[in-house]
């Protein structure tokens, strides 16, 4: 996984539709460890993939259906996913706040129409951020996706909005 050269490659964790921020990290665990995101890690995807944090490998990619990340504004949700080692998420579409939060912390999210339907758990996926392409190597399917708006791409390539502002100055947005 190297966002630096715009290409991400990894093994797939397949999820369904409507994965809410509560599925990612439930409110009770968030508030129990509100002062330290790291302590929430064992509860990431608790009800969806029990024991996820012990099974995930650095660079893995989540592929999901529609409305990924719907629900609360909790930024802990994408931060935990990134902390777990997940390198990108491909889904049919994302909830608005989750999308912003992920981009802001430098976690690439890709909206794709075909890949979510044809991808299974364990497939190998390659994402080319600059060419706006997602490739399921296992199934030998290539999908051209909508390019990122320039600002969003700038945020991602700088590793998040805070880094973008540090690197490029306060007029970068």
């Amino acid at each position: 996984m190297t966002v630096e050269n715009y290409v991400i490659r990894g093994r797939v964790w397949k999820l369904g539709d409507n994965i809410t921020t509560d599925h990612i990290i439930s409110g009770k665990h968030k508030f129990a460890f509100i002062d330290d995101v790291n302590k929430m890690l064992p509860y990431l995807f608790e009800e969806v993939i029990p024991g996820f944090i012990n099974k995930v490998s650095p660079g893995d990619i989540i592929v999901a259906g529609s409305n990924f990340g719907i629900g609360s504004s909790r930024e802990q949700a994408p931060r935990l996913i990134k902390l777990s080692g997940i390198s990108a998420i491909v889904a049919k579409n994302f909830a608005r706040i989750f999308y912003r939060n992920s981009i802001n912390i430098g976690l690439p999210l890709i909206e794709a129409r075909v890949i979510p339907d044809i991808t299974d758990n364990g497939d190998i996926i390659t994402i080319d951020l600059k060419k706006s392409m997602v490739i399921n190597e296992t199934k030998n399917v290539i999908e051209q996706v909508k390019p990122f708006p320039q600002l969003v791409l700038n945020i991602l390539l700088n590793g998040g909005i805070i880094n973008l502002l540090k690197n490029k100055g306060l007029d970068a947005i």
Partner: peptide, 29 residues
Amino acid sequence: ADSHTTTLGAFSSFATGVGSTDAVVAMLL
């Protein structure tokens, strides 16, 4: 920095929910 910020649209405002980093950017800039 709460998804239900849309509530404030009842007062003819454009009120939108964001996450913490977005809130920081708005606070500082």
